[in-house]
Design a protein around this nucleic acid. Sequence first.
DNA 1: TATGAATGAGTATTCATTCAT
DNA 2: TATGAATGAATACTCATTCAT
Lengths: 229, 229, 229, 229
Amino acid sequence: MLQAARSAFEEQGLGVPLGEIARRAGVGAGTVYRHFPSKEALFRATIVDRIELFTDTARDLADVADPGAVFFRFLSSVVRLAARNKALCDALEAAGAGRFEPSPGVGEDFDDALEVLLRRAQEAGAVRQDVGIADLRALLVGCLSMERALPGCGSDGGVPGRMTALMCDALRAERAVTELETEPVKRNESRCGVCGAAISAARTGRPARYCGGACRQKAHRARERTRQT
Amino acid sequence: MLQAARSAFEEQGLGVPLGEIARRAGVGAGTVYRHFPSKEALFRATIVDRIELFTDTARDLADVADPGAVFFRFLSSVVRLAARNKALCDALEAAGAGRFEPSPGVGEDFDDALEVLLRRAQEAGAVRQDVGIADLRALLVGCLSMERALPGCGSDGGVPGRMTALMCDALRAERAVTELETEPVKRNESRCGVCGAAISAARTGRPARYCGGACRQKAHRARERTRQT
Amino acid sequence: MLQAARSAFEEQGLGVPLGEIARRAGVGAGTVYRHFPSKEALFRATIVDRIELFTDTARDLADVADPGAVFFRFLSSVVRLAARNKALCDALEAAGAGRFEPSPGVGEDFDDALEVLLRRAQEAGAVRQDVGIADLRALLVGCLSMERALPGCGSDGGVPGRMTALMCDALRAERAVTELETEPVKRNESRCGVCGAAISAARTGRPARYCGGACRQKAHRARERTRQT
Amino acid sequence: MLQAARSAFEEQGLGVPLGEIARRAGVGAGTVYRHFPSKEALFRATIVDRIELFTDTARDLADVADPGAVFFRFLSSVVRLAARNKALCDALEAAGAGRFEPSPGVGEDFDDALEVLLRRAQEAGAVRQDVGIADLRALLVGCLSMERALPGCGSDGGVPGRMTALMCDALRAERAVTELETEPVKRNESRCGVCGAAISAARTGRPARYCGGACRQKAHRARERTRQT
DNA sequence: TATGAATGAGTATTCATTCAT
DNA sequence: TATGAATGAATACTCATTCAT
């Protein structure tokens, strides 16, 4: 059933009727609900492992030599895989808009792992300094849109990558032309996701996500609630 | 009524219920159908003039000096305007996926005008040679996705532009680090949309769209049918 | 399993999903069905003993001195216990509407035992003469409704009793201001439940329920069928 | 359609499928939703006028001589009318449990009008002093339960009133036997419905419902939200 | 015998489109 | 011609009951 849901979501995105999934799985609609409490829960279940795979890969690459090449290669491969997968595209877009979280922590773990690769590439001088992790998330969404928009690519069965290569060039540090107007949107410079208070950026350690324990706890409870939905 | 539809579509995209549009216009739903045979026809009607405006602007810029600056400025302004307009975003994305055409010829005219600016900028050495008009269309869709994905931009009321600036950098000739894998998809190198035969690229004049008069006529009749739907 | 069903029904009434009961019992839904042919049968099984307990208590009180006090105390205690038990409330209400019978004979035994207390109290001059057992059954349902309707009582965890005390006052002989319009509905004056013929009221012995042996047998077979459902 | 909904709700209560209502009205389900945004809104619409009728009647009776007789007659007639109407029964019961409000203010107006009759009857010495408006609301629910529980009454087409007459006797002041344990639950002695703070009872004027302007405003906004549902 | 996965009819709600007036 | 009431298919979700293992 998960397989049926996966393929249905990958082809048609979050919009597939649940009945279609049940039909593909050869079961009744009720059976789907027996296993997953809601359509969104099923959707989450079909993509968490994909995102975790990305996260794991990124973590594995954190120590590999030539951080610049590693970063660009990783970015390209993520786009290449996700562009064929409307479920991932929908999820990334919805997550960007704050309408969706695959599973508590999964999105953040991915961000963290990606940020490490970005930082290393920046420190190695391979990637321009004025982009942050939030830029990168948006860029990912954009690449997917582009690859899918390009005729003969994405869902059409073509080989994606062309537009992503273009984007990678945009990120390269050498000969940066335009200076981006605003400061890079780095997560550890942004605000507490719960109360909105400014968070002072610590130089070392994992960047703080909340302004303090109270808000972290509040967010944790919210995640718990989400997990039960 | 067109005004009501326009604002509704701009705010909520193709997803607005038709009843909402009728309500805003202060008329009955039937009256909307009296003037437009379907919701999609109404949608088309609300965006053609926007696209034509872009087309006209692009044509006006075709003779202005400093083709590189002109090109980048035009691109940015299109994104800036469209990012606040969910109707345009939806239309561009759907058009890219081949699911939608604003009106026969309108999309192509825009492409043509945009292509002229692109060519001039390329000839002036400002834009890398390995991108084509199809790339540019995809890139437009991607920019809109990115701007809307970036927190505090797009629909959130922020000032778009950051990601577009990045994209523009990607297009600059002096940044062309990677050679794009596949050949740029140039329209006049593609195939006849009707019979699929290869079309020999003419060096001058408006690029041929069909392999000959028979196919052009066939396509015209198809468009007539579409227009009535 | 019976215990799990009991607590579930007591808390949420007949409306609990069967799956919830199975979950509480730590068994599969199929196992519940192995023991009870339907949800209603399980429901019946969880309340018969409660009603039988009431019946037994009433029988024990049939000889106790001060019939008036006994009657009122019994009535109050039934309400007090049942008000906290949504299963009993639902059962009593449905039984009153003729939609439900806990088990063949159980409801009638309760009625009989209650009727004895009522008669004794009436003979002792403590309860007004113009109420019958059918009135009392309705009154029970009403008391439960009232206790549950009163804020801070019933399901809210408050102490029930206030409205029941009022009802008891209504039953007291010395309060009989109004003469009840219609005759009290006495069961032994009603009609044969099978053929509808009038049943002559015997002064002594257990009141006849059917007009004769033929109808009694017919009713018995019907009960057997019900038991299997 | 309102007529169809009314009769359906009256017969089967809030539980009627919306499709049944549509069928009775001879229209599609969508048409019902055209006129009423939700099933509950339709339900409200079918009972507000009934409750307002009660309220108006009660107000008209506020000046009539012999307050005791007026009070009891009014109570009986409300029960008589409502007992045949499962919609009203459901509404009164749900309202008592705080799960439902027919329309902003309607329930409170009814309470106010009823309270006036109660107070007058108490001042005239016709009704015992130890019952309050909250008791009366519960009592109403109880009477309806009883009348419907009595065989041959309520929905069965019989003449209701018997149990209500009994309840009226319970309310009569002359020779009150039991003193009700707790204080009467009078609304103006209870707590602020918003913040729960105690409200000091004013001797004159309309009894305060909220502890102050802040809470009154909060409740007003809540009602506004309800009205839009 | 016990299990729990599967079933499928039923419910409220939405919305593009049609059509009588 | 303009209206807006009517339509009905579609969708997510629930739950009593069945049945293969």
